[in-house]
Design a protein around this nucleic acid. Structure first.
Lengths: 141, 141
DNA sequence: CTGTATCCTTAGGGATACTG
DNA sequence: CAGTATCCCTAAGGATACAG
């Protein structure tokens, strides 16, 4: 069985907590999907697929599965619409919001053409903890 | 001219500031080197090479060059020791410390065997801004 | 000591077609 | 709608040797 998309986690390179975190989120797609999940509050496969960065469906599916296995996301069939599958972030995923917001801050500072929802940009730099609390409550936590 | 190691930046996928930041630091090595540079305050090629994660010399050289081009690092010949080259982080690099510390916090929380210098772990969770200020002053900024 | 230069391998990813 | 299944490709990285 050859692996075509990333289905497993890479081996730990060290026990440094930063290195550990990077072994999980240190790639081009993981934090993009997490951004959509935690900050943009996307819930359905099609919504993730529709992002500007244009992730491929197989890559997205692999990431969502990885998240499920790692306990970042719960997966359930939407009770209201028979077929839709609903993804919900867990605590472990929401705990990455500070990382996302710091990346956003840095990106905003050094990328002239940066473009993101104003209240998030503002919140990230002026009232980070408040914004996180607000997002948490929107997620029901 | 074929490219064997990463010498250029990838194309921007979107103007989302998070995506922009990830296009630069979203890989397995960039933030490891930045960790050594900003948090562990390493200065010489050999010091970076000696990290637990065992980066290869060509990868390290490529990253340092990339940093120099992107204005994250200044490079100068050490005036005291004739041959040694001294790498110093710029403001743009130090501005990534919050990202590193949030990754460290997450890694510490979810990785049972996480192992990092105590005062950094403590600082990252209890007094983040103070720790950053302290590190900045150690860097002379 | 600070890197280059090669060689080689493979995980990761884009495109696309298809299925329940 | 929510994925699988392929095919193919290449950027990225490991190993190693060696140069200034």
């Amino acid at each position: 069985m050859r692996k075509k998309t990333r289905k497993t986690l890479p081996a730990l390179r060290s026990h440094c907590p930063i290195s550990y975190a990077l072994d999980f989120v240190g790639d081009k797609w993981t934090l993009i999907v997490l951004r959509d999940l935690c900050l943009a509050r996307k819930r359905y496969f099609q919504q993730f697929l529709a992002s500007d960065e244009k992730i491929a469906s197989n890559i997205l599916a692999a990431r969502l599965k990885l998240f499920e296995n790692a306990g970042l996301v719960t997966r359930e069939t939407d009770p209201e619409h028979g077929k839709r599958v609903l993804y919900t972030p867990t605590e472990k995923a929401l705990d990455l919001m500070p990382v996302l917001l710091e990346l956003l801050r840095w990106g905003t500072k050094y990328h002239a053409k940066a473009n993101a929802p104003a209240h998030i940009v503002k919140g990230a730099s002026e009232n980070r903890d408040g914004l996180i609390a607000e997002l948490r409550s929107l997620h029901g936590k």
